[in-house]
Simulated scan of single mutants.
Amino acid sequence: MANERLDKDAGRERAKSGGGPRIRLDQPRPQRRRLLPDYDPEAFGRLSERVARFLGTGRFIVWMTLIIILWVIWNIAAPRGLRFDQYPFIFLTLALSLQASYAAPLILLAQNRQDDRDRVTQEQERKQNERSISDTEYLTREIAALRMGLGEVATRDWIRSELQDMVRDMNEERPSRRPPQPPPRPGQDPGHGREEADR
């Protein structure tokens, strides 16, 4: 409510000072009238690439050579009334100059578009390479941490050797603590002799 009042007051002050109506930033500007024709730069760029691609082919050179040969032969061998370009071939020179004057900017425009695409591709590849390098460094650190952790973990061979040492120590200590048991007699309960020895 207070903001609307401030906006109205600011608008009145601007109108009094001759500042004109306030420009709204949340709406697009009205289109201005242009003297030049309006065109789609993307469509024009695609057309220029097609033309430049055709101008760089052998087919274009063959067609242009055939047209020039026919042009020269016609204007030399045809009857005088049917010749449209006499010997210095000024019209042919003018046509080739016009074709070259249009071909050069179209080729440059196509090259500029290709350079822009190459620049974007190189930027994406650079970012991808940076991500790959950071991922590789992260994995290298993780593998080093796993190796360090595995260095402290007991391996199967180490546990086996420790158990064998413990069994050997227990076997060496057993005879000193308890006398050896005689083998049970035939027909005697094996547990009976053990009970008597324990007594």
Rank of each mutant, 00 (worst) to 15 (best):
G18W: 04
E142T: 13
R156Y: 14
R141S: 08
A104L: 14
E137V: 10
Y39S: 06
A154M: 15
T65D: 12
D165K: 02
H192E: 08
N112T: 08
P184I: 02
R185N: 10
P105W: 00
L47G: 05
A110W: 01
N75R: 01
A52L: 02
P182T: 07
I159D: 02
Q124T: 00
R29L: 12
M148E: 15
M64A: 15
R174A: 15
V51M: 02
R178M: 14
F91Y: 08
R80M: 09
G18D: 06
D165M: 04
T65G: 14
V62A: 15
E173C: 06
E125L: 05
I67G: 15
T155P: 03
G191F: 06
F54W: 11
F44Y: 09
T140L: 12
K127V: 03
M1Q: 11
G11P: 11
A77R: 13
A145R: 15
Q114A: 00
G191D: 10
A77V: 09
R147P: 02
L82F: 15
F89K: 06
N171D: 15
E123L: 02
K127Y: 03
R141K: 08
K16Y: 06
Q124R: 02
P175S: 12
V51I: 08
S101M: 11
E142V: 13
G187V: 03
G56Y: 03
P41K: 00
M170R: 15
T65E: 12
L146N: 04
G56S: 10
P37E: 06
I76L: 06
K16D: 07
D7F: 13
K127C: 05
L36F: 13
L55G: 00
I69A: 12
F84V: 07
E4L: 13
N112R: 12
R83A: 03
R131A: 05
R185M: 08
R34G: 11
D157F: 04
V167I: 10
P179I: 01
Y87D: 09
P182Q: 09
K16W: 00
K127P: 01
D115L: 01
R14Y: 14
F89N: 05
P30H: 08
F84H: 07
R46P: 00
L98W: 12
I23H: 11
S134D: 07
M64R: 15
W63K: 13
I143C: 00
Q114I: 01
R117N: 06
R34L: 14
A103G: 06
R59T: 12
P180C: 06
S97E: 07
V51Q: 01
Q128P: 04
R14T: 13
A145T: 14
R174Y: 14
A78Q: 00
I61G: 14
D165T: 07
A197E: 01
M166I: 10
W158I: 02
A77D: 08
R131T: 04
R34I: 06
W63F: 12
P190D: 07
E4C: 13
D157N: 09
D135F: 11
L82Q: 11
A104T: 10
R34K: 12
Q164R: 02
M64W: 14
R24C: 10
E13G: 11
R29C: 09
R53V: 01
A144G: 03
L36Y: 13
L6V: 12
M1S: 12
R83V: 03
A2Q: 10
W71N: 01
V153F: 15
R83Y: 01
